[in-house]
Structures are given as structure tokens and as C-alpha cells.
């Protein structure tokens, strides 16, 4: 089974996100593999191992996305495609979906996995846009994915519980944190990642023009909201239960 994982490189989440004067996120330093996408990589590796297949990762991002891609390779992915182009700076979800769909289409695939939403952008719609462009069925919010005889069986988290969904391959599935426990790259994995195929592509290699990836949405203003000042803080033991109960009574809920 050929599994493709869409992985995003994000600015180190332990740092503070900053916006530049053009309202775009400043992406300095090495990117990290989005923790949400690590679950997708893990799920892909598990499925490919069971079927004797391979895992390819596809990522669109600036040059510093390379470290995130290498992490996916170090975890065990077999090869990677990195799409990077000056014309993609500030690309929105639609443009990103066009690029990723075009990159995925270049090789045969059985299953595309992605995260439910990215840690920095959290639009959460991009994988579905890719699925529609690829013309494949999909299941989102998978907390469990199994594949038997060309059919993916997914436990899909819902607002009230979960659904069981079946989907003929080829298909696209987005996975939650419950779907897999990401493995830690071994030293051997890190070493071998260096010699795995990493294909670098520009927009033109995908047959796309800059006009086709022009953003359709633009941040035009950013404004700080009035911060509600902190309220009263007491130490536990200072009648805490009575004070909380007073507040509940004031709110007329007891």
C-alpha cells in the first residue's frame, strides 16, 4: 500500500508567534514537524508496515521546512517531496491545497493521511479541499484507522461520540491524537534519513502559475482586544469553598 502523508512545518510552538508588518507570521529559524502531523506519520508507518508498502511525505513550505521533513523521514517515511517557491509566500489554504493535490497526483497512491488541523493555522479544511481535488472519498477526525482488502475502516470522532465509517481506497483520512502514539526517531533512523530521496519542487514543476496560487483572503487589520483585568486571587484555605459558593450564588446557579 502506498501511503502519502501531508506534513506541515510550523514555527517552534515554544516560541512566541509574531506577525510581520504584512500580517504574515514571521517564520525564522528551523521549522518543526507539526505535532498533529506526527500522529499521521505514525499511522501511515503502521499501515504501510502491515502491508509491506511505503510512506511518502509531501510538504509545502519555505526552505526551513526541511528540518520538519527530515524528522518524518527519521521516523521512518521512505521519501519526501518538498515544494518551495517564492510565489507561495503568504499562500492561503486554497493555494496550498492546489499545490499539495498537484504534488500527490504525480505518483500512484492508496491512502493520503493528514492532521485534523495544523497547530499554527488551524483552518482544518485543507485536507478536504485536497480530497475533492484528487476526487477521492474521505473521513476526517479518525481516532482509529484500519485497512483491509482495499477498504479503510475508521472510527470517526463526532461531537457526541464516534461513528464507524468505511471508505473504499484510494481515500484521504485525517487523524486525531488518539489514532497513534508517534515513535521517537532512533539514531539509525536519523542517520538513514540523510540518504533518503528528498525531491525539491518549485511551482512550475507542478504546472502551476503564480496567478493560480494568488491568495483569496488577506488580513487587513489586527487589533488588540480590551483585556479583562484579572480578578481576585486568594490562597487555598482562605475559605475557598465558601468564596466559590458565594460567587455561584451571585450568579444565581445555587
Amino acid at each position: 500500500m502506498q501511503v502519502v502523508v501531508l506534513v506541515k512545518s510550523i514555527p517552534d510552538p515554544s516560541g512566541e508567534a509574531k506577525l510581520g508588518p504584512d500580517f504574515l507570521v514571521i517564520r525564522e529559524g528551523d521549522g518543526v514537524l507539526d505535532p498533529g502531523d506526527e500522529y499521521a506519520v505514525e499511522a501511515a508507518l503502521t499501515l504501510a508496515e502491515a502491508s509491506g508498502g511505503e510512506v511518502a511525505v509531501v510538504s509545502m513550505g519555505p526552505a526551513n521546512a526541511a528540518s520538519a521533513i527530515r524528522r518524518a523521514l527519521a521516523m521512518g517515511a521512505h521519501r519526501a517531496t518538498h515544494i518551495s517557491d517564492e510565489a507561495l509566500r503568504g499562500a492561503d489554504a486554497l493555494a496550498t491545497a492546489k499545490v499539495l493535490a498537484a504534488a500527490v497526483r504525480r505518483s500512484p497512491f492508496d491512502l493520503v493521511l493528514a492532521g485534523v488541523e495544523s497547530t499554527d493555522g488551524y483552518t482544518g479544511t485543507l485536507p478536504m479541499t485536497v480530497a475533492e481535488m484528487l476526487g477521492v472519498p474521505s473521513a476526517t477526525f479518525a481516532r482509529k484507522v484500519e485497512v483491509t482488502a482495499g477498504v479503510a475502516r475508521v472510527e470517526r470522532q463526532t461531537e457526541a461520540g464516534y461513528d464507524v465509517v468505511e471508505c473504499a481506497l484510494p481515500a484521504l483520512v485525517t487523524v486525531t491524537a488518539s489514532a497513534a502514539e508517534p515513535r521517537f526517531p532512533t539514531l539509525k533512523g536519523i542517520m538513514s534519513a540523510r540518504s533518503k530521496p528528498l525531491e525539491q519542487l518549485a511551482l512550475a514543476d507542478l504546472g502551476l502559475s503564480p496567478a493560480e496560487v494568488a491568495p483569496t483572503q488577506r488580513v487587513v487589520a489586527v487589533e488588540a482586544t480590551a483585556e479583562k483585568g484579572p480578578g481576585e486571587v486568594i490562597q487555598a484555605g482562605d475559605d475557598d469553598a465558601a468564596r466559590i459558593a458565594d460567587l455561584l450564588a451571585e450568579a444565581k446557579v445555587i
Binding site: 486554497l94 483552518t123 482544518g124 479544511t125 485536507p127 478536504m128 475533492e132 470517526r156 461531537e159 483572503q217
Partner: peptide, 22 residues
Amino acid sequence: THDSRDVAGRLQARTGSALMSN
């Protein structure tokens, strides 16, 4: 919601329109 988000993402591929989340 989970379902509406999926429909919106797919519709965007067909219409090429801007889709804003959140």
C-alpha cells in the same frame, strides 16, 4: 462542526472561493 467543515472544504475546491475558518 466536523461535518460542515468537511463540506465547506470540498466546496472550496469546486468554486475556487475564499474559505475562512474560525
